[in-house]
Nucleic acid binder design. Structure first.
Lengths: 247, 247
DNA sequence: CGGAAATTTGAGACGAATCAATAGCTGTGG
DNA sequence: CCACAGCTATTGATTCGTCTCAAATTTCCG
């Protein structure tokens, strides 16, 4: 029974996130649960997808963190985006798609094949909204890197992660587990780990956040968002995490 | 006759680019030419799409340059990507899509409605490959902003633009028209216009490029690519601008 | 030709990188 | 239970790249 409970726990964040993208019916839930039954674990640091290689099939991330990353010839590294439970990776409609970035597991990760979906079906809508969100997060990342300073970049990324982890139920209020080293964060934010460290300390001093032992608490998310001029993501008028709201 | 020739010239880069994404049959070409017949001109600085507003229909860019851009509350500006003739904008499969970025005309621009396409059709493949390329260019931009220095950013972007303008036939050898101010370039590259100016001058001194009166000539594209560690984009094993090649 | 926009130049300030060392943690095995 | 190895986080001193501010100068365009 403990075993079963654990498995259900594993699926819960992914299911919750998919359900947030579009209302799921029982049939779709069954499809996803069935796919999740064939899940496999991949160890931290292993590659899920390799840049330049053909993509086999889209995957649904059930547990753990992954990231899209690009390595430069001279060893510099840039994380392009973080992938959380409920995210679908490698969903490309063109024929014989080739991966334009490597996807690497940041923690041990549980993945299953993403069930195929007809365009226009419920699941098709879920994937479409998920893809749109992915793209929106990448665009937000461009702005972060291009026009925010170090302190703003850190705050902005943590707010985004909190938003996404709230969506899939992995946040507890304003706290969440952050299984990233400061070096990883630096390679996502276009900074050095030394500077990330200094700016995190400053954020702690300014009572923007706590961060100890892999767990982050944002002390005032709306205040922080105001401080760095962040607006939440919205990709559809009818569905998704940011419901329409009167002006 | 001069009039007709002009119109054909206008369509040519867009058609050439679409044809490069997947082989077009006569019917698809007719469809595109018919759509292009309903084209309209939009003046420089006008918005084609507004962030936060619902997207009406996808558009095909026939002539001129546009860009996706995001404005921060305090006036900072970040260009997310440049759009060239043959690019399709606002192609979003989710229901009632909302624009996550503004699209603004950088020059006078000619656009028409992008003809609808069934998934799996020739035109559907064209759109799919085009979308994949767009996403790949955005990911390249993330890497540019996160891990390249000012000189590398400029060279890398110019190489990408040259690659794209070669694809749609707007480049002449290693030269092409670049209708951007240094300030626009700066807002794309996360720099100030003053610094862009200095780095462009340095590139001129080092014989990497010429740039006069809105026209750029790259003096040794492969050499420049090597110098900054650039690898061209490839999104499909069967189609697209970068054919498979023996190692 | 005149005025606005774009490019260029200079001097100085500041944010982030670099280099180097120390301290803290985590897991491992004796 | 302690000692050790190997990360990860932290601190300090200094350098470097880019920004800022300000002022020419040149180019574009009506």
């Amino acid at each position: 029974m403990i075993r079963a409970a654990t498995i259900i726990d594993d699926r819960q964040p992914a299911l919750q996130r998919l359900a947030a993208l579009a209302p799921l019916d029982a049939e779709v839930i069954d499809t996803i649960v069935a796919a999740a039954g064939q899940a496999q674990t991949i160890r931290a640091r292993r590659e899920l997808v390799s840049e330049g290689r053909e993509i086999a099939e889209p995957l649904l991330l059930l547990r753990g963190w992954a990231a899209r990353v690009r390595l430069l010839p001279d060893g510099r590294r840039q994380f392009l985006s973080f992938l959380l439970p409920g995210d679908v990776v490698g969903h490309c409609p063109q024929p014989r798609p080739v991966a334009v970035a490597t996807i690497v597991a940041l923690t041990d990760v549980l993945v299953c094949a993403a069930p195929p979906a007809a365009p226009g079906s419920v699941l098709g809508t879920v994937y479409a909204v998920g893809d749109a969100l992915d793209q929106a997060y990448v665009l937000a990342h461009v702005t972060r890197l291009g026009r925010l300073n170090a302190q703003e970049r850190i705050g902005d990324l943590l707010l985004e992660l909190h938003e996404r982890l709230t969506l899939n139920g992995m946040a507890r209020g304003t706290s969440f587990d952050l299984p990233l080293t400061q070096e990883t964060l630096a390679d996502a934010l276009g900074l050095t780990s030394v500077h990330v460290n200094r700016m995190v300390q400053q954020a702690r001093r300014e009572n923007d956040l706590q961060w100890k032992g892999g767990r982050v608490t944002l002390l005032d998310p709306p205040g922080l968002a105001r401080k760095i001029g962040r607006v939440p993501v919205r990709v559809s008028a009818t569905v998704g995490p940011q419901p329409a709201r009167a002006r």
